[in-house]
Design a protein around this nucleic acid. Structure first.
Lengths: 160, 160
DNA sequence: GCCAACGTTCAGTCCATACTGAACGAATCG
DNA sequence: CGATTCGTTCAGTATGGACTGAACGTTGGC
């Protein structure tokens, strides 16, 4: 693995770690992102220099999040992993779930807690409403994105 | 602090921890979310049963994220902390920054890496475009939310 | 039905970091 | 100014979790 690729996997690993996932999961994801053909556990552990145990644990973690999927090749007993096709929607779904979880906690607090003043109640109500509004907006945007034709992809985003 | 409130602070703490922040930061944030009047470091450390050192560290962390702000009361040398007014926009901004960071990493990889096949290139292009599209959509939704009048807040969200 | 080649699991180790108590520095009152 | 009352910092500790090597279970092939 060359230096640039290594830097890429490291940065993705840092992002994953920042999100509370093991860094190796990020490196596996990054590597598969750059791979055309699916990769086996042994290949992953070999190329990344990690144990097969870690490769196994983290591939299953990524699969549980719907970011990668196992694939059985005919005539082989090995599991080969690749990124899923609807990559963006799956990674979006993970974020959205957390978002909704946060919204739920705020909502439950608003409903069940003895709030000291109307001001506090209003603060929670507005906060919850904003979170909920944003979750809806994100959901709608995902639907809209699904309708964007694949070939116009280079022009849709404005970048940073 | 009663049991329900404690449960609330614990859940928020878990969410914060899930996002890579110290649990005490979450508990402080949750407590301030339910407080009408601002609270001092001593009050926070006392009510949450944590050291003043932790209270200091984590309030500054929360302030750096723009979620709470210090407030000096006239005739007092103490710092009092409360949640900011534009709570939602600040917490949203944090998420959005991470989102853009992720988009940037993918984009830099797409531009600088030697990709094996056109299929991989297209995968990265579409992924980056989707992330960028979503970042824009979130930004637009934030602007729109700002325009929603405060009194209609109970009807805007659809919930889970 | 034994064998080999897988993936998974688990105890053990190690490392990162949250948290604490105590020392420190700064600022305000008398 | 001296003392007090703050907030901050820092070394030390403890806790959680990522990672590993080895044992285990399982599934196809001969």
């Amino acid at each position: 693995m060359d230096a640039r690729t290594s830097r890429f996997t490291d940065r993705v690993a840092a992002l994953f770690e920042h999100d509370g996932l093991p860094p190796i999961a990020g490196r596996i994801f990054a590597l598969l992102l750059l791979s055309e053909e699916a990769r086996s556990l042994d290949q992953l552990s070999d190329e990344l220099g990690v144990s097969k145990a870690s490769a196994s644990t983290n591939t299953r973690l990524l699969a549980r999040f719907g970011l990668i999927e196992p694939l059985r090749r005919p005539g082989s007993r090995r599991d080969y992993y690749r990124t899923v096709d609807d990559l963006f929607e799956r990674s979006m779904a993970v974020r959205l779930d957390r978002w909704r979880e946060f919204t739920d906690v705020i909502g439950e607090g608003r409903r069940t807690l003895a709030l000291p003043t109307p001001e506090v109640r209003e603060r929670l109500e507005r906060y919850e409403a904003a979170l909920s509004y944003m979750a809806d907006a994100i959901g709608r945007a995902m639907v809209q994105w699904r309708a964007v034709p694949a070939r116009r992809l280079a022009r849709t985003g404005s970048g940073r």
